[in-house]
Design a protein around this nucleic acid. Structure first.
Ligand SMILES: [Mn+2]
Ligand SMILES: [Mn+2]
Ligand SMILES: [Mn+2]
Ligand SMILES: [Mn+2]
Lengths: 219, 219
DNA sequence: TAATAAAGTTAGGCTTACCTAAAACATAAA
DNA sequence: TTTATGTTTTAGGTAAGCCTAACTTTATTA
């Protein structure tokens, strides 16, 4: 299993199973995320199909086979364990861990993953609030929702982020919005849909766009 | 800098500067170690030469430029830091760490190396007794010698191994020969050059071959 | 329904890092 | 000094993973 193959399977899994509006991806969506051209995606899909990792008909959407899903979940498990390691043990901040984990997720060693998991005390969520699949590939399900769906006056806890870009993470970190922050939605401006948040004795106004990238758990 | 390029430079460095009988390598020696064919080595050398990492004339031995040496030392630093991490923090044994470190050594992140170094409290030797270059690329020099050069009756401490194969390491580990073991060379058999070692209230006989793969410091 | 736009596919090419087979060169032995 | 042996280089070729350009199919809109 090459780095490239692992990346394709991982992204396919995330698109099919982890985004808010779950749906199978097509060639060009995949190309966009992997920063390659649709023609390249097509080449790779041909190979993944032959190897029985994906299963799609011509001109149809791409779906993972059981085998492909297993590989994808394992890569995701490694990615998120490494992020947790970098964050918890090496004192990286949550905006820095993703890029390095993109490399570390491809290290092949079952023993390493097992030992790392133990070293980190079997974490269930990564620094961005995403669930870490366990050794069997099982993933905890939460009923998190987007901050943008919260009603005025409601109380909630931040449990994750949808956008993992360094820019976004640094931005909301500067606003002191963190995993486990407990917040009251004081007001929603009708004009521009900005939200006024109240937490830690402070008021912070965030845009609609930001509220669409933060997962919360109503309390 | 690709994985392959890094591996070539690392091995070149080890051959030119770290083996007991220091000398620059040739095409086929490099091929043997990298498990590729001499023709492939030639292809790569052509590229490394163009990029000014190595410097050799046609049909001559291969030597690293300053630039090539720097890259090699950095890869070696990462390799040995990761081995130390696996050994000290993840409870791998010394026969297991090398293969995983072969992968980890290629992770590109200056911050990661820096943080890892700190996390490990700036180790100066890896689990096999090899020196870890510091951030500036400086390497501590020791006056270690091979166990095979020790005279009968002498007292010494084990400080390293020449062979990093899992088989060899597991073998001497079973004999309870470890880094920092303090040993007296009780006898050398004239017939087959085997050595009788005395340490920890025990006597162990080792072959000439084994004595040629263990670095020691006379006490 | 027909025209247009978007998405997916195919053909042909490129680079990296390998390979085999054969030729050129260097070194050691006869 | 000639011959044999081993080493290095060259020539030509492959597979992976990407590319552009052209073409086909599907989806959207007039
Ligand atoms: Mn990530
Ligand atoms: Mn990746
Ligand atoms: Mn090693
Ligand atoms: Mn390597």
């Amino acid at each position: 299993m090459s780095f490239a193959e692992e990346n394709y399977l991982k992204v396919l899994y995330q698109l099919s199973y982890e985004r808010v509006d779950r749906k199978d991806a097509g060639t060009s969506e995949l190309a966009l995320i992997l920063k390659v051209k649709p023609a390249s995606v097509n080449d790779m899909l041909k190979k993944l199909k032959e190897k029985k990792y994906v299963d799609n008909k011509k001109y149809g959407k791409i779906s993972l086979t059981k085998k492909g899903k297993e590989v994808a979940i394992n890569v995701l498990r490694k990615h998120r364990l490494w992020e947790t390691f970098l964050y918890e043990k090496l004192d990286f901040n949550w905006a820095e861990v993703h890029d390095v984990a993109e490399q570390l997720e491809h290290i092949q060693s079952k023993k390493l993953v097992k030992k790392l998991d133990k070293f980190l005390s079997f974490p269930r969520f990564d620094p961005h609030g995403d669930p870490i699949p366990n050794e069997k590939g099982e993933i905890v399900k939460t009923n998190r929702v987007l901050l943008s769906s919260i009603k005025k006056g409601d109380f909630f806890r931040v449990v994750g982020v949808k956008d993992l870009s360094s820019d976004f993470l640094q931005y909301i970190d500067d606003l002191k919005i963190r995993i486990n922050s407990e917040i009251i939605l004081e007001d929603i401006q009708e004009f521009d849909k900005t939200r006024l948040l109240y937490f830690n004795e402070n008021k912070v106004r965030i845009s609609k766009e930001v509220s669409d990238c933060i997962f919360v758990l109503p309390l």
